[in-house]
């Protein structure tokens, strides 16, 4: 018995997890793929009978779907690039001993731990153009006011700002940890050579930190591209469809239009998109030897 265990432990140990994944994940995915090849719609009264790839052929002509892809990337890239720039900059700033450092680390944790649905409600309240606190503060400083999530042009940046608020701390913490792990020698050499602070950062710190930054970036990409709670709570895709990302569009097709077949094809494409981004993660993790 014990021998059998020992010999097969590399299969037996992961077995329960694999079974769980098979049932809870593989079944839903296969089911969704099957649905995507049926015209199943509760509202149009069409049954889930196989009809091939028709749903997928319709996708390129669906202007809302095409727009939602672009929008998803707009949101993701805007949010993540801001997070990385701000995160790295703040991490470099905080990378020294000073009073209150522990407290600041604690406060950094709060945004990403807080429940997104609850936080989205707070931002929604703060964003109201006429009676919201943000415009009030801007007005008090004589700055131009914004319409935030209440306007087609500013809605994606406003949502991205919430994401930036929530997740920049993660980049900061990852970079701080990465900075602590860096070897000391190059810095000492730089001091000896009389390099300025900026030169040290530019030519020594950043290159050495790059692997950490890129992994953090890619991790954020995977999660940002799937953002749902915040958008669903704050705008549900509005005004018009101007904040409708693929995730939201799939939700609308499923649960507001009840076109389960078509929604499934949107989901499958979406899955493919996230998967490719994730493969990028794995690939770069390997190539960077982390």
């Amino acid at each position: 018995m014990s021998n059998f265990l020992d010999r097969n432990v590399k299969w037996l140990f992961p077995l329960p997890a694999i079974l769980f994944i098979l049932v809870m994940m593989v079944f839903p995915i296969l089911y969704t793929v099957w649905n995507s090849m049926t015209p199943w719609s509760i509202s149009a009264g069409r049954p889930p009978t196989f009809f091939g790839l028709e749903n997928y052929q319709k996708l390129p002509d669906d202007s809302r779907f095409v727009a939602s892809i672009g929008r998803t990337f707009y949101f993701t890239i805007l949010a993540v690039s801001l997070e990385v720039i701000l995160g790295v900059a703040i991490a470099l700033l905080l990378n020294r001993e000073f009073r209150f450092k522990r407290i600041i680390n604690s406060i950094m944790l709060l945004p990403m731990m807080a429940t997104p649905v609850a936080i989205a409600m707070v931002w929604l309240l703060m964003y109201v153009p006429t009676t919201g606190i943000i415009n009030f503060v801007l007005r008090a400083f004589g700055l131009p006011e914004g319409l935030w999530v209440y306007n087609a042009q500013s809605v994606i940046p406003a949502l991205a700002l919430v994401d930036v608020w929530e997740w920049t701390p993660m980049i900061i913490l990852i970079c701080l940890a990465g900075l602590t792990a860096l070897p000391h020698d190059p810095f000492e050499a730089a001091v000896v050579d009389g390099a300025s602070t900026w030169q040290t950062i530019r030519y020594i710190t950043l290159p050495m930190l790059m692997p950490t930054i890129s992994v953090a970036t890619l991790l954020r990409l995977i999660d940002a591209i799937k953002t749902f709670d915040i958008i669903y709570t704050m705008t549900q895709g509005g005004p018009g469809f101007t904040s409708e990302t693929i995730n939201i569009y799939a939700f609308v097709q499923s649960f507001q239009y009840f076109n389960f077949g078509y929604a499934s094809s949107v989901l499958v494409v979406f899955f493919a998109v996230v998967l490719s981004v994730s493969l990028l993660v794995t690939y770069s993790r390997r190539s960077l030897e982390i």
Partner: peptide, 16 residues
């Protein structure tokens, strides 16, 4: 295989 669960869009799971 296990990490793929992290990248599947949550909506995929609701009805199944």
């Amino acid at each position: 295989a296990i990490l793929i669960a992290r990248i599947v869009p949550g909506i995929t799971f609701l009805i199944p």
